[in-house]
């Protein structure tokens, strides 16, 4: 265990923490601003990676896949927020989406259960059946009003878990279940050697990305009107509304931003962790650990939390491999027991 060992391990821990910052900061912002515990956040990460893979397959450009995947997932997040997490407006669109989803499932289930009814899986009959089922469902659901989720934590959790399942199955159907990998440009697969220590360039890149995004986020939060509105909403949403801040717009912006960051993490992490089914639920507890340790709603907290989790995970595995499953959760329990709002959180 010479100096070199400690340097390499610290570097690895920091680079892993950089990745965790990308997924954790979005989660933290969403909770801080909207008081929403978003369990679909892991799915955004995974979808970011998958969409990037498709972009790379299609255009061959890795650089292009970064913004495209992140923006696409931001749109998905936005739609989810508008339609299901907020209850005002868009009733027709929401009911329509639900009816379509349920209708298609009913049509598929009928065709699987009684194939003779539609003469095999012929798509015309299937479409007609689906349309009828959708209309029927629309008729049904438009008669029932939804009950807003608002700030009920348990309902948020179950609702977003439900979406996480839907996203997971959809990813499986769209991209298949193979273990895939994003290959960044060859330049990134090199290593630089500093004083006999190999530093893989890709890890350097991850750190650089996280720092750049961290600074950009900080600038947005501190120097722009939108940032000021966000901060005011985190502190006291009611008061913010009182002084004329459009908290509705703020929450829309933040949810999209959170999804954007998670997806960006997915593309960057995809070259480092791979892209495969189940990655979503593997990343989710890590993201939560970051947010819990750092405190919800605090960017600085997310940065510290990400570093702490990255380093704890890395040194825990390297030094005490026997108990490596606890090096993450045990500190989490202790911190929560001592300071339930996390290191930098405010109640």
């Amino acid at each position: 265990m010479n100096t070199q060992f400690w340097v390499v391990q610290a570097f690895n821990g920091v680079s892993y923490g950089a990745l965790l910052f990308l997924i954790g900061s979005g989660l933290s912002l969403i909770f801080g601003v909207m008081r929403i515990v978003n369990l679909s956040h892991g799915a955004y990460f995974l979808w970011g990676g998958y969409i990037a893979l498709s972009v790379i397959n299609f255009t061959g450009s890795w650089a292009l896949s970064l913004p495209v995947a992140a923006l696409a997932v931001a749109l998905i997040g936005l739609a989810m927020e508008r339609l299901f997490l907020r209850s005002e407006g868009l009733t027709v669109l929401r009911t329509g989406t639900i009816a379509l989803g349920v209708g298609v499932l009913i049509a598929l289930a009928i065709s699987a259960k009684w194939p003779h009814l539609i003469g095999g899986a012929h798509w015309i009959q299937l479409t007609v059946l689906g349309a009828i089922a959708t209309l029927a469902m629309y008729g049904l659901f438009s008669r029932i009003s939804i009950v807003p989720v608002d700030t009920d934590v348990l309902r948020q959790v179950l609702l977003t878990v439900g979406f996480a399942f839907l996203f997971q199955q959809a990813a499986l159907d769209i991209w298949g279940g193979n273990n895939m990998d994003i290959n960044p440009p060859p330049a990134f697969t090199q290593s630089i050697v500093v004083g006999g220590v190999y530093l893989p360039l890709y890890r350097v890149f991850m750190i650089a990305m996280a720092v750049a995004i961290g600074i950009a986020l900080w600038l947005v939060m501190e120097k722009t009107r939108m940032g000021a509105a966000v901060r005011a909403t985190v502190d006291d949403a009611q008061m913010a509304r009182g002084v004329g801040i459009d908290t509705n717009k703020v929450s829309m912006f933040i949810f999209a931003l959170g999804a954007f960051l998670a997806a960006l993490g997915g593309v960057i992490g995809g070259a480092f962790l791979g892209i495969y089914p189940g990655l979503d639920f593997e990343m989710l507890p890590l993201a939560f650990a970051v947010v819990i340790i750092g405190g919800m709603g605090s960017l600085g907290g997310a940065a510290i939390g990400a570093l702490a989790v990255g380093l704890a995970d890395n040194f825990g595995k390297a030094l005490f491999p026997e108990v490596s499953y606890f090096t993450l959760y045990a500190p989490m329990v202790l911190i929560l027991a001592i300071k339930p709002t996390g290191l930098f959180g405010r109640e």
Partner: peptide, 21 residues
Amino acid sequence: LVPWWQYALGGVYVLTILYLP
């Protein structure tokens, strides 16, 4: 019956929460 039963399960989660709290 079908390989996509997870849609139904996810759907039950979402619909229960939205319509039947």
